[in-house]
């Protein structure tokens, strides 16, 4: 293992050193292919981000795939209704590893302005693991790009081996999550308790 300072010194002399891990992460983070689907108004901002003015292609994520089999990033852009939630989870399950999820907008994070509605899921993270949350209603395309860069940083920091390696490299971690069923009053189960651990609030009264 060459240390950081020496490598910087060498790169100044036009000698580039890398490791498999870095090469792997470099390749993956610069070619994130998002799944082509939108749920509500945030999707319009996502479309704007892919057009010429904001140009998501600068970050290698312009290849919106129409099939989950070819995508490795799911941008949950918009309100997830309880009727739609099983479809979203099923699409996530059908994506090949490694896969990442960006929850775009207040609705995908927590239900947003429709939080107290009877048919809105209070955050897609109740069913699938979310990597980056982008707040906003809707977030501007710059915010989406920032979220994408944040995800790229996260990927750059992933380890290939060792106990800290990400979920998709661990053999026993699932690649599919249970799809909720339509119940008589709510989705069944209303959340994936193995996945979703909200911070318990301890407050005065």
């Amino acid at each position: 293992m060459v240390e950081e300072g020496l490598r910087n010194e060498l790169s100044r002399q036009n000698i580039f050193l890398t490791s498999i891990q870095e090469l792997y992460n470099w390749g993956r983070r610069n070619s994130l292919w998002p799944l082509n689907f939108g749920l509500a108004c945030c999707a319009i901002e996502m479309i704007a981000a892919s057009m010429a003015r904001f140009d998501i292609a600068r970050f290698g994520a312009e290849v919106f795939r129409p099939s989950p089999r070819q995508a490795d990033l799911m941008i949950v852009a918009g309100t997830v209704t309880k009727k739609m939630a099983p479809m979203v989870v099923r699409l996530y399950n059908q994506m090949p590893e490694p896969k990442y999820v960006i929850a775009m907008g207040a609705c995908a994070i927590s239900g947003g302005p429709f939080k107290r509605g009877y048919n809105v899921l209070k955050g897609i993270d109740r069913y699938i693991p979310v990597d980056v949350y982008i707040p906003g209603c809707p977030p501007r395309p710059e915010a989406l790009l920032h979220g994408l860069i944040t995800l790229q940083r996260k990927i750059a920091g992933e380890r290939l081996t060792g106990p800290e390696r990400p979920r998709h490299l661990r053999e026993l971690e699932p690649s599919e999550y249970p799809i909720p069923a339509y119940g008589p009053y709510d989705l069944d189960p209303p959340k994936n308790t193995e996945l979703w651990h909200p911070k318990p609030f301890v407050r005065d009264a």
């Binding site: 009727k83 339509y182 009053y185």
Partner: peptide, 10 residues
Amino acid sequence: LMWDEFKDYP
């Protein structure tokens, strides 16, 4: 709007 299995009237 609601799924077919839904029982209540929201």
